[in-house]
Design a protein around this nucleic acid. Structure first.
Lengths: 189, 189
DNA sequence: TATTCTAACTAACAAGCGTTAGTTTTGTTA
DNA sequence: TAACAAAACTAACGCTTGTTAGTTAGAATA
């Protein structure tokens, strides 16, 4: 309802718990206990468990959509676009690490219009990425491998980045960007 | 207890449901309904929900461990080893697609020794992969990028393969192997 | 035919779930 | 200090959960 600090705190704590155990394994009582209050008190700030999940996921999903639109609007080569996408993913991952777990693993527990919206954003995001790759192949910048394999390979790496970033204490962002662009585009040989 | 067909059927149905909704979101009644029996009847064949999860995850985790040990035992170049690992991942993914969802997303819901065992197998797997990459860098076969980024990039792609294989109707395995080896090793330019 | 085994069933349990209603505490403003 | 709003509380609701106990139908074995 409001934009209170307490509401943001709930969403932040819930993100952390969802990241650790998954949406279905975290109860309202778990969230409340982590904040040293009772479960019923949460309802002074949010309308229910579903709303918490929606807010977490929709915020980060929108960030990706906006980021991809910015990349597509630029008049640059396909390779340059892919570099931008990689850098955008890294930036969002660093700032929204725990929300990415929900986006990746718990999107199917959204309901109603929120579920539809997230699925649609995801499809459009992949379609935009696919177009960039095809553009690059057509222009001769990218090797004519199965574009689906290229798309899948890069996107899998980017989507799983949050896990690695959590595991091995926060690599330096600029080094990470440089190395990932290099590995994903030029390969490892 | 026994090696009955009915038990395997339960595990197969459970794998499918866990793959769709996640371990915590699937109830024993869901599994039973999908088999046209009552939840209590499941207990004639298995000891509980935890056992179902353990059997699903441990089987596929062991397959990876055995596969990796075979690769490491070979006296071939690092690049050849990585090719073998990629091909192994694709083979296991095709034959155990739904179990991979549980291994990736629900391993943290294991309990006791099973949890420890899976975590340990995962760590050892990654350590073996890391060694192969370092060997390749040392031998000059692999570019001296941060080995951690190379490891993470390839492993992320392989671990997420089951999702893409499910989404776009089963790509041809041999073409997939060829293209993935090419993209992951030689890059996309 | 009588017996044993398998695999289903019904009924119930204690515990935990998300959520609501109504009340009390707390801190700020008039 | 009195009044008010914010945010906590207690208590309870109906429902679902994993699981157990005891029973029954049907097939295989003696």
């Amino acid at each position: 309802m409001k934009n209170s600090t307490r509401k943001e705190e709930i969403i932040s704590v819930a993100s952390r718990l969802f990241n650790e155990k998954g949406f279905q394994a975290v109860s309202m009582r778990d969230i409340a206990t982590a904040m040293n209050i009772k479960a019923a008190s949460l309802y002074n700030h949010i309308s229910g468990k579903q709303q918490i999940l929606s807010e977490i996921i929709l915020e980060v999903a929108k960030a990706f959509t906006i980021g991809m639109e910015k990349v597509c609007a630029k008049d640059i080569s396909a390779i340059e676009k892919i570099k931008m996408v990689i850098e955008m993913h890294i930036a969002i991952t660093v700032s929204h690490s725990e929300a990415l777990a929900a986006l990746n693993n718990d999107w199917m527990h959204l309901e109603g219009p929120d579920l539809n919206a997230v699925v649609k954003m995801r499809e459009e995001y992949e379609e935009n990425f696919r177009s960039i790759i095809k553009q690059g192949i057509h222009a001769g910048e990218i090797s004519p491998n199965h574009p689906e394999v290229i798309l899948f390979s890069i996107l899998s790496t980017l989507r799983t980045l949050y896990l690695w970033n959590q595991k091995r204490g926060k690599l330096d962002v600029n080094i990470l960007k440089k190395d990932m662009v290099s590995v994903l585009i030029k390969g490892i040989v």
